[in-house]
């Protein structure tokens, strides 16, 4: 993490607030605090923001607010943020059916790591994963915190079509495909929950700075959730993060 935050112009309508040049939970926590404050109150002319592993990009209208005024505003947030107590990040439960046709590569992941299938499921579903950022495709979460014990290289030749909801592993990362797309991740399971639905008032399920946790379900439970999703009866489980999986700064 930098001693002093950097502000960099990114064209005439965007600027980057850069906290460091590495991926770590401390930086993510700094970013989460700034964004929490922004959501309550923000300077006129600031349009939106993109949090990433190590920075926030701000989009603004330079005919309303100047580059320097935005920086002053952000520095003010930076100065007050450590004196404010924030509510803890939320954990969203992602019900996941592991293996079989839903996770065709689960056996390979187990073999590759010298583990049983049950071990892989226990390790994968035994952690709260920090959502560092969303990107790549709408709603795709970049997660941190997967155990090295289940790390597995990508497929040598990517699949042409992976359906939305597929849960996969690529090297030491895990993730969920929000929408159908090609991809080379090892598929270990599938969630019925939709990470992205443009018709909803809140189209995205997840938010950078929060956590998610995979919860194993069987095929009957999976089917039941699918049915409840159709009738609108299903609500994902969400609760404040309490575990001390990753030390926050």
């Amino acid at each position: 993490m930098y001693e002093k935050i950097r502000f960099l112009p990114s064209g005439d309508c965007n600027l980057i607030m850069e906290f460091g040049k590495e991926i770590n939970p401390q930086i993510n926590n700094q970013i989460r605090k700034i964004i929490n404050l922004l959501e309550k109150d923000r300077i006129h002319g600031l349009i939106e923001w993109i949090p990433t592993y190590r920075s926030i990009l701000f989009t603004y209208n330079p005919s309303i607010v100047s580059f320097n005024s935005i920086i002053e505003f952000l520095q003010e947030l930076e100065n007050i943020k450590d004196e404010i107590s924030f509510s803890p990040p939320l954990v969203t439960e992602i019900p996941t059916v592991y293996g079989g046709e839903y996770g065709p590569d689960l056996t390979y992941v187990a073999q590759h790591n010298g583990l049983s299938i049950e071990d892989v499921i226990a390790i994968h579903s035994g952690t709260d994963y920090l959502i560092y950022m969303l990107g790549f495709t709408p709603g795709f979460p970049y997660l941190g915190g997967m155990s090295e014990k289940i790390a597995t290289p990508r497929l040598e030749s990517p699949r042409e079509k992976i359906t939305g909801g597929s849960v996969g592993i690529a090297a030491n990362q895990t993730g969920i495909y929000p929408i159908g797309s090609p991809g080379g991740w090892q598929l270990i399971g599938k969630t019925p929950v939709r990470l992205f639905d443009p018709q909803l008032e809140e189209p995205f399920l997840l938010k950078a700075g929060d956590y998610l946790r995979f919860v194993p379900v069987n095929i009957e439970e999976y089917t039941e959730i699918c049915e409840k999703l159709v009738t609108g009866e299903y609500r994902v489980k969400r609760y404040p993060q309490q575990r001390d999986g990753e030390r926050l700064g």
Partner: peptide, 10 residues
């Protein structure tokens, strides 16, 4: 479409 870039929406 503004306001959703933080969720990965172009």
């Amino acid at each position: 479409r503004f306001g959703f870039q933080r969720f990965g929406m172009p």
